[in-house]
Design a protein around this nucleic acid. Sequence first.
DNA 1: AAGTGATTTCAATCATTTCTGAAATTGTCG
DNA 2: CGACAATTTCAGAAATGATTGAAATCACTT
Lengths: 204, 204
Amino acid sequence: MREAPQSPEDQKRALLEAQDGFIAAFGQMGSAWGISRTMAEVQALLYITGEPLCTDDIMERLRISRGNASMSLRALLDWGVISRAHKRGDRKEYFQADQDVWDMFRAILRERMKREVDPLLASLHEIRDKTNSDLPGKGKRSRDDDPELRQKVDEHNTRLDSMLRFFETVEALSQKFVSPAGRGLKIAATLLTSPLLTGGGRER
Amino acid sequence: MREAPQSPEDQKRALLEAQDGFIAAFGQMGSAWGISRTMAEVQALLYITGEPLCTDDIMERLRISRGNASMSLRALLDWGVISRAHKRGDRKEYFQADQDVWDMFRAILRERMKREVDPLLASLHEIRDKTNSDLPGKGKRSRDDDPELRQKVDEHNTRLDSMLRFFETVEALSQKFVSPAGRGLKIAATLLTSPLLTGGGRER
DNA sequence: AAGTGATTTCAATCATTTCTGAAATTGTCG
DNA sequence: CGACAATTTCAGAAATGATTGAAATCACTT
């Protein structure tokens, strides 16, 4: 409902502002999920911009130092959510984001599973094994056994096991979700219309 | 394969150590996912212990201050992953964790969606609306229009839209996943055996 | 309504993470 | 090989987030 005619300059400014809004929102969210704000912002900038940018472009647009830009870009490359590009006759490196949102998130998911779920699982396994050899199961019992303690140990093991099973399921699921390109969307679509979800349940 | 006979004291110590290992691993993971380490540890302690504990129990076991314990417990209550309990003839409040891992994670998921995805979605909508009124779509074009800019704006809108669609899907999925109790596991099981996942694909 | 113990709050402090900027390194070209 | 631009590294500075502890508040009881 705006009446004021807009010059190309105004339009351009408005576009940049809108992009900044997106970048800020995305950075915000990233930091809540344990990704550094800057890293998320760089990703957002490359994504919303759609074209390859060089380190200086990013430094200028995001007002960050060269060091920070370099390290964030490196991390994003490691995560596999952006890639290098080159312009002929230009010595600088350019970077661009994967344009498919699902691919991007699958890459992030894959990386985080590897980094955070796998170690937890390993540590859970270790604890379980140690507990079992130190405190053998119902099978044999030493004459010193105290029934109350025995029960606590059993319960501990039960809970540890259900936690293990949970994370192993999550892990397996994420592997499935993550492997072949383009799958994420299909899975989501299927899930959203699946009778398991829409049917049966007595959800109000 | 241990030979040394164990006194009940040894067994008890071993149990506590194993629990501490679990608590540490869980706290570690929590902090990587943007939940404060202490909050995650309190949750882990209540979970692995299985019985109601009071503030002092938690302070002592986790070596944290009263203030910290109080605030962490409050936050966990807000998230709906632990609940209050009372012992008759005791003025203190006790707390216990939900014993179903899936329920627990569904509660966490619900809370995080509410806190972090919803605001991002809102902000994305706002940006889209603002951009559209400032820079109207292909339909009408002012005489000042510059085709190159126009194209950039269109691309910006396209990317914003796919991001929006992505998060709306995620949101919808999480709602489905989160609503009726006990669903999570069933969904996971279905997904893991679904032909969509195991069949078709040419995953090496 | 005063006393008592439990609980919450919050300013100050402490710890951790992130960022900067200058120096070191890498890679390219003549 | 030098010269030079681009990039990386990293020690310390700055920012952010978590924790403490003591005082205030709350909720019973007598």
